[in-house]
Amino acid sequence: MGTLMIGILTRPYGSSNWNFVINLAKAAIEKGHKVKIWCSGDATYILKKKQKEFARKYHYEPKIKELIEKGVEIVGCESCHLMRGISEEDFIEGITSKPMTWFFENLLKADKVLFIGEE
C-alpha cells in the first residue's frame, strides 16, 4: 500500500475540485492507502467548522469529518489560513496547521502526488 499526497489551492464553494479530491481521498483510503491533503490559498476555507448546509448544494464539513475518521491527514497552510482570519480554533476537529515545509517534507515520503492548482 502506498501514500497519496494531494495538494489543492482552489476554494471549496464555487468549484467542484473539492468534490473530486474528497471522492479520490475516500476511495484511496478505503483501498488501504495512506492519504494526506495539503490545503493552500483559498482551499483553507474548507478547514472551517460550522459550514451551513443548503438543499442541493455542496456541503463539505460532514465529508471532511468522515475522511478524518477514516484516517486521512488534512493539513492547512499556516500563513494562508491565518491571513484569512481562520484560526486553529475554527478548524474542524482533527485538522492541523503546518508551514509550507511540511508539504515538501511529506512530498518526499509520498508514493504519488497530485496537485490541483488554479483552474
Binding site: L9, S40, G41, P99, M100, T101, F103, F104, G117, E118
Partner: peptide, 11 residues
C-alpha cells in the same frame, strides 16, 4: 496564486 507559486518554490 502567483505569490503562492513562488512561495511554494521557496518552501
Amino acid at each position: 496564486v502567483p505569490y503562492l507559486g513562488v512561495d511554494h518554490a521557496m518552501g
